[in-house]
């Protein structure tokens, strides 16, 4: 056999990695990207004539328990913020795959490089919190929340991707130290509050933020005892900020409360102030 040159080496790598889909209804179109657990391909569903995202899980990229879980997790979570799974199976070489809706959009980390308004940033963050809260209610921890795993669709959709490291409540704590540096909670063993920490780190990536939101991000990434107990509690504090109410992350004294009330009801406060000023002026000029 002649020596393998660089081009042959590259083709052999492709040949070994490319999934054999001949026994399925899917036809490979292109590589969409590589995730933590495997490679995502764009494929054509020959029965329904539509494009799907087909994820092939690579044993060399993750220990076996993680490979079995992702499709099961996604199938369990039916939510507008989670990409639905259409189909799943096994390649002739034993690799597992599953097909899901093809989401074409922009990753949050890329979107944040542009100048998104505060309202848009909060809308996105609020939806991510809601999706995570839903997953927690179903007994699923994501464990790898980060802007790279949030996809923004062209019609305002906010989708949470890559559930490959997710943990089902029925699994018990596997003790694995998973996630991404910078977004991973410092505690060794995680529960739902580990995801809350990651959400706080995501909020921190959305700077610049007003002081109340900075305080919310700090509280979400605080030590376990001081942290929000759930993603829902974090989302509630975001709602309070949006509504102009006091957030639990900022202890409020009487002066601060008055200032916030005045700021929140600017028009009414202006009318009252104008009335009081007018009456005062009238009293000063007429003595009545």
């Amino acid at each position: 056999m002649k020596p393998l040159d660089d081009a042959a080496l590259s083709r052999l790598r492709e040949a070994v990695l490319e999934p054999d889909l001949s026994a399925t209804r899917y036809r490979l179109i292109s590589v969409a990207g590589k995730g933590g657990m495997g490679t995502v391909y764009v494929a054509e569903d020959s029965v329904l004539s539509r494009r799907v995202a087909l994820k092939v899980l690579e044993p060399m990229r993750a220990p076996d328990p993680f490979l079995r879980r992702e499709a099961q997790v996604l199938a369990r979570l039916e939510h507008p913020g989670i990409v639905p799974v259409h189909d799943a199976g096994e390649l002739p070489d034993g690799r597992r795959w599953y097909a899901m809706k093809l989401v074409q959009g922009e990753r949050l980390d890329h979107a944040l490089r542009r100048k998104l308004g505060l309202g848009e940033r909060l809308r996105i963050f609020r939806q991510v919190c809601e999706t995570v809260a839903f997953a927690h209610a179903q007994g699923v921890l994501h464990r790898d929340l980060k802007p790279q795993n949030v996809m923004l669709g062209p019609f305002g959709e906010v989708l949470l991707l890559d559930w490959g490291l997710a943990l089902l409540g029925t699994d018990g704590d596997d003790g694995a130290r998973v996630g991404t540096e910078g977004f991973r909670a410092p505690e060794a063993r995680g529960d739902a509050r580990a995801d809350v920490y990651s959400l706080g780190a995501i909020l921190g990536q959305m700077r610049p933020l007003p002081p109340a939101l900075e305080a919310i991000a700090r509280k979400a990434t605080a030590t376990l005892d001081a942290r929000y107990p759930s993603a829902a509690a974090l989302a509630d504090d975001i709602d309070r900020f949006v509504e102009g109410d006091a957030v639990t992350a900022v202890p409020e004294g009487p002066f601060r409360k008055i200032a916030r009330m005045l700021s929140r009801h600017r028009v009414a406060a202006g009318i009252v102030a104008a009335y009081v000023l007018g009456r005062g002026l009238l009293f000063f000029l007429t003595g009545r």
Binding site: L67, L91, G94, R95
Partner: peptide
């Protein structure tokens, strides 16, 4: 571990 996965890895 099941047979297909043994083939894969």
């Amino acid at each position: 571990m099941d047979e297909p996965l043994v083939r894969a890895f």
